[in-house]
Simulated scan of single mutants.
Amino acid sequence: MFRSKAEKKVLEAGYEPSRLPPGQYLTDKWPVLHAGSVATYPADLAGWDFRVWGEVESPIALTWAQLNELPTVEVTQDIHCVTRWSRFDVTFAGVPWSAIRELVGQRPSARFAIAHAEAGFTANVPAEALEQEGALLATHADGEPLTAEHGRPLRLVVPGRYFWKSAKWLRGIELRGDDQPGFWERLGYHNDADPFAEQRYAF
């Protein structure tokens, strides 16, 4: 019954029901969910940087100004939270991974990417997930700079996975030859996090 009610709402909103993963409901809001407190920074982001290291030829640390000199893209996609809400047609803008990959010289041995965010939060994905259409380091959502609650100034956006993989307050990407479970994965959440397969938990 839950699924049929959810599908009915999607139809009434004018969308194709197949866009909604099982166990999800559609919302036009963007709920705020995270572990710990909201990260805050100076208005000019003085002292902020974004690092990439690990299986690369040239590790980097970019200031906010340097990051904003890189090419940008805009993508529109659906997002799905493991807490069961979905939001359709969210437009993100930011730096594609390809621009970062060229700077660092990503090695073929880089099979996994670990997102490092504030307060020690991490999220892990296969490195190839960063190459997917729609993946980017987002600075904007729906035409506006990210708010503090949604990850200002930078968050990872990884399409096709529950949204905890899209780490807020991103400060770095570590490329590794081996996988390393992230914050929620170590607490029992599924390593792959495919919403359409309902990969919510590892158990």
Rank of each mutant, 00 (worst) to 15 (best):
A113F: 07
R176T: 14
E185G: 12
P96N: 10
W184A: 08
A110C: 14
I100A: 10
G160F: 12
P181W: 11
L146G: 03
G177V: 14
W97L: 03
A115N: 08
R171T: 09
T139R: 11
R176L: 11
G105L: 09
T91D: 04
V90K: 01
F92E: 00
R101Q: 15
A93G: 10
H140S: 02
T91N: 07
A167W: 02
I114A: 12
G177N: 09
Y162K: 13
R87P: 06
I173T: 05
S109N: 09
E144P: 05
A113S: 11
Q106M: 14
F163G: 02
E128A: 03
R155L: 02
K165Q: 05
A110K: 03
G182M: 08
G120S: 04
G151T: 04
P195N: 07
V104N: 01
R161C: 11
A148R: 15
K165M: 03
Y162H: 13
P145R: 11
F92D: 03
L154I: 09
P195W: 09
H116T: 14
S86H: 05
G160W: 09
A110E: 13
F92Q: 00
A127T: 14
G177T: 14
L103G: 04
R87W: 10
F88W: 07
H190E: 13
G177L: 15
L137S: 04
A167V: 06
P159E: 03
A141D: 01
N124T: 13
E144W: 04
V158Y: 01
A193N: 08
H190F: 05
T91C: 07
T122L: 05
P145K: 12
D89Q: 09
E185N: 08
Q106N: 14
V82I: 15
V157P: 03
L146D: 04
A138N: 04
R87K: 11
G105T: 06
Q132Y: 02
G151W: 01
I100Q: 12
E118I: 11
E174K: 10
Q132R: 08
H190A: 12
E102Y: 12
P96M: 05
G105V: 11
T91A: 09
R186C: 12
P126H: 05
P195L: 08
R152I: 06
G172K: 09
L146C: 04
G120K: 08
H190P: 06
V157S: 01
I114D: 02
P195I: 07
H80L: 12
L154D: 01
L170E: 05
V95R: 03
A138I: 03
G94Q: 06
I114W: 02
A138P: 00
P126W: 12
A129L: 02
E144K: 07
A115M: 07
F163L: 13
D192W: 10
F163W: 11
G151S: 09
L103T: 07
I114F: 00
A135D: 04
H140K: 00
G188K: 13
A141F: 02
W169P: 01
R176A: 11
P159V: 08
T122A: 04
A135M: 00
A117T: 06
G94D: 02
Q180P: 06
F183H: 15
G105Y: 03
E185A: 08
W164V: 15
N191S: 11
A93S: 13
D142A: 02
R155D: 03
Q106W: 00
E102W: 10
F121W: 14
L175A: 14
C81S: 13
A197S: 11
L187K: 12
G182F: 02
P126F: 07
A129M: 00
P181H: 15
